[in-house]
Design a protein around this nucleic acid. Structure first.
Lengths: 192, 192
DNA sequence: TTGGATAAACAACAACTGTTGTAAAATTTA
DNA sequence: TAAATTTTACAACAGTTGTTGTTTATCCAA
């Protein structure tokens, strides 16, 4: 993965910042599928070959961008410093729902490549967080399968909610959704 | 979607058959990401512009191919003529696991575009099948959320199993997996 | 301060994509 | 059977991608 930012050559830092900023600006203007590497390089005012020195292709750029953006949401809510409780699980479900709503993912044809990549990164991070939480619970049970099921269920629910035409209130939706996820994690719940 | 095959111009039928056959042959030779529309057209011995008359791009071709392939597996097991029971659910989970294993999906870099598309189509079909099953159960509960959670959980489990380095025996794995899915569908189980 | 190392710019290349208008071939319809 | 319609082939076009070797600019370390 990328080296820590503290040890970066300032030119690398500046160029990556330009790329990510331009990419974000372009995403606000048009759909991901309509954006070309050429577009990003031009907006960032760098050479196209320089883009390829930093990112393999535009999909790698999106992966990085989404991962960073979702990580920020997790850190803002200090979810990465938590352990498993139903309340934390509830907050996590809300976070994913809000993140997808804010991205404006929809089924538009022009978004065909965008959503699967968002999904992959967010699911992975949710899985990693759940695994971190569950492994703190001092329960001698493998976390892999429960964390997998919970992560996929959370994303599936969030995707369903963000795609709903008449979107129910998020709090109410999460009231319905939470039991379907927590039921498989009860064995990790701390005895109070 | 495509009109029924009975009413097709024979040239369309022939051309589509050539495209799908050639695509299947190419998938046996190299990864999806390495296959170009040019490759498929050459192997099918059709003009590249004719390819575009039938499929929007190679992703649409893959969507179609996967949907058809998985549909065949469902029909072979007559799962589309069933209603919800834990045994049928078990068979469905096994079907998805075997389908993914047979496709040889892995995390190879060269498969980056393949797996998300497979996932999307298979999840959708699993969701549609579950919705069909649950709606036959004469239970006055909305099927949408339970079917969503179950479909995503099934695919997540199958993906996890097919990616496992030391893959456990499928029967044993499904023994572990089934309760995590069925727990959310118990309200639809028929009172015997 | 200077030399070495690294990052970025540049031009060029081959390949592929997606599209278009025209022509030929094949099928359908009357 | 012949005309109409549809499908496919074709060539051409503009655009983008991914890569490469060379040059220039910038940073780091001694």
């Amino acid at each position: 993965m990328l080296p820590t930012e503290e040890k970066l050559d300032p030119r690398v830092k500046r160029t990556r910042g330009l790329i990510l900023q331009s990419f974000g600006d372009l995403l606000a203007e048009k759909s991901f599928d309509a954006i070309s590497v050429q577009d990003v390089a031009e907006k960032a005012q760098i050479n196209r070959a320089t883009f390829y020195a930093h990112f393999e292709d535009k999909y790698a750029l999106l992966d990085h961008s989404i991962r960073q953006g979702f990580m920020q949401e997790i850190e803002n809510r200090m979810l990465n410093a938590c352990h498993y409780t139903p309340d934390n699980l509830r907050t996590l479900i809300i976070t994913v729902c809000e993140f997808l709503a804010q991205l404006g993912t929809d089924c538009a044809q022009s978004q065909r490549q965008f959503e699967p990549l968002v999904e992959k990164q967010v699911k992975l991070q949710v899985y990693e967080l759940l695994t971190l939480w569950l492994s703190k619970m001092n329960v001698n049970i493998s976390t892999e399968i429960p964390a997998t099921v919970a992560a996929w269920a959370i994303y599936g629910l969030a995707s369903y909610w963000s795609h709903s035409k008449k979107r129910p209130a998020l709090e109410k939706f999460v009231d319905q959704a939470l039991p379907l996820v927590s039921v498989n994690l009860e064995q990790f719940a701390q005895v109070a």
